[in-house]
């Protein structure tokens, strides 16, 4: 069980949106984590790697900011086995490369621009995620 948190979730979502709007206003960039990270990886390391690294470093400090405000780190629980989790990560890496984006780039920034590619991508990954969770939990019982 995880607690239903409509208010905090909407507030957190609004902060993600604020970050996306500011990054566009100041840098002219899409706040897509796949794209930002991809520009740091060979064979296509981008010339503008510095802002990308700074944005990711800021993201990593997010929980610290959270702790400063609330007095404690956010709690997480990884409810899957290590092999499944690592295979999942590898599959995510392949998928976001070919799909040109993930939840942030397509799901937030692209959907906000009403980009047809992002709408199709978001509906597609939401559907396959739902089917995967169903199969894992209710068919294979992992």
């Amino acid at each position: 069980m995880t607690e239903f948190t409509p208010f905090l979730s909407a507030l957190g979502g609004a902060l993600i949106g604020l970050s996306a709007v500011l990054l566009m206003a100041v840098h002219g960039r899409i706040a897509g984590v796949t794209g930002i990270l991809g520009g740091l990886l060979p064979p296509k390391i981008a010339g503008d790697w510095a802002w990308r690294a700074a944005f990711l470093a800021g993201m990593i400090c997010g929980p610290l900011g959270y702790a400063l405000i609330t007095g404690g780190m956010p709690r997480i629980d990884v409810p899957v086995s290590v092999p499944m989790f690592l295979i999942g990560g590898f599959i995510v890496g392949i998928g976001v490369s070919y799909g040109s984006g993930c939840t942030s780039g397509h799901g937030v920034c692209g959907m906000a621009r009403v980009s047809p590619r992002s709408i199709v991508a978001t509906l597609t990954f939401m559907a396959t995620t739902t089917v995967t969770v169903f199969l894992v939990r209710h068919v294979f019982g992992l």
């Binding site: 999942g88 995510v92 799909g99 993930c102």
Partner: peptide, 16 residues
């Protein structure tokens, strides 16, 4: 690509 990403997300619970 998007379909593949969803499979990985569903297995792990983490997105980038």
């Amino acid at each position: 690509g998007a379909a593949t990403f969803g499979i990985g997300w569903g297995l792990s619970g983490f997105c980038p």
